[in-house]
């Protein structure tokens, strides 16, 4: 009896929330590594973009980056690197469900589907692989633009916190649009639109101080604007502005909670609908 109970406990441990997420992540990483050529080509593209703005920064070395003690290249490389994480977090959950539906694996996955585990597992795998691209891009930035920082342990922890908040806030947006994908069995195309808006209006390549009117409203509605502003502040200000940090983190946490709850409810309803109407494997 004791033996049975202990083996059951062991089995439960193996099937814990973290273990299942780990299993999803590892399988996704393995799958992505089967497409090495794709990964390398995207890396080449990212490096090309970094070079492009490196030379643009040379157009005026005294370019004013509103209120920040940084050159243009130092300013934009942070956003360009994190843009890869944003793209991955935004595209993964929705894109993978869309692929599962298109390739016909959705009906088998659907039987033991835990949406939260699936989203976290696949996004973590994508971000893990994107992080290598970031490391390579930062190394190149160090070589070509003498891009280097000395930061304290406290700043490292804060950067990690912001990194997780950025990742989670974009993952929940992806989860929100997944409900549409599950319901209609097709991609809404809105994820790529949000990605384009984020690339343009969240202050990656120019400070949002240049914006006014409707573009500023869009900028303020994007979670990456708050994450990037905080990161710039941590890296380029002489001291940490705790008030700004607390404000931006609260906004990001608020977005994660509100969008996350709405996404979860909508996905639940979509799943219920497709089950009821027998549209699980229909494409």
């Amino acid at each position: 009896m004791i033996e049975i109970l202990s083996s059951f406990k062991e089995e439960t441990k193996r099937n814990s929330f973290i273990a299942r997420i780990g299993a999803i992540s590892i399988s996704r990483i393995k799958m992505t590594l089967n497409y090495k050529s794709s990964y390398l080509m995207v890396l080449v593209l990212n490096i090309t973009i970094v070079f492009m703005y490196f030379f643009f920064g040379k157009l005026n070395p005294d370019m004013e980056i509103f209120g920040l003690n940084a050159t243009y290249f130092e300013y934009c490389i942070i956003g360009l690197c994190l843009q890869m994480i944003v793209g991955t977090s935004l595209g993964t959950a929705n894109g993978n469900i869309n692929n599962e539906i298109a390739s016909g694996t959705w009906s088998s996955l659907f039987l033991q589907f835990n949406f939260l585990e699936y989203s976290i597992g696949t996004t973590a795998a994508g971000v893990f692989l994107s992080s290598f691209s970031i490391l390579i891009v930062l190394s190149i930035a160090f070589l070509i633009g003498n891009f280097a920082f000395s930061i304290t342990f406290q700043e490292v922890l804060l950067i990690l916190l912001i990194f997780i908040l950025i990742l989670a806030s974009h993952m929940v947006i992806s989860m929100l649009f997944t409900s549409f994908t599950i319901f209609y069995q097709k991609d809404s195309g809105l994820v790529s639109l949000i990605y384009q808006l984020t690339k343009t209006f969240s202050g990656i390549l120019f400070p949002i101080a240049l914006l006014s009117g409707f573009p500023l409203f869009i900028s303020n509605s994007l979670p990456f604007t708050y994450g990037l502003e905080t990161l710039h502040m941590i890296l380029f200000s002489d001291s940490i502005q705790w008030k700004l940090l607390a404000y931006n983190c609260s906004i990001l946490l608020g977005m994660i909670t509100v969008i996350g709850i709405i996404a979860y409810v909508l996905v639940f309803l979509s799943l219920k609908n497709v089950k009821k109407n027998g549209k699980v494997d229909w494409y």
Binding site: L193, Q196, L197, K199, T200, F201, L205, L210, P215
Partner: peptide
Amino acid sequence: IIFSLFFY
């Protein structure tokens, strides 16, 4: 959006 980026 793309042209807004280049404009700014």
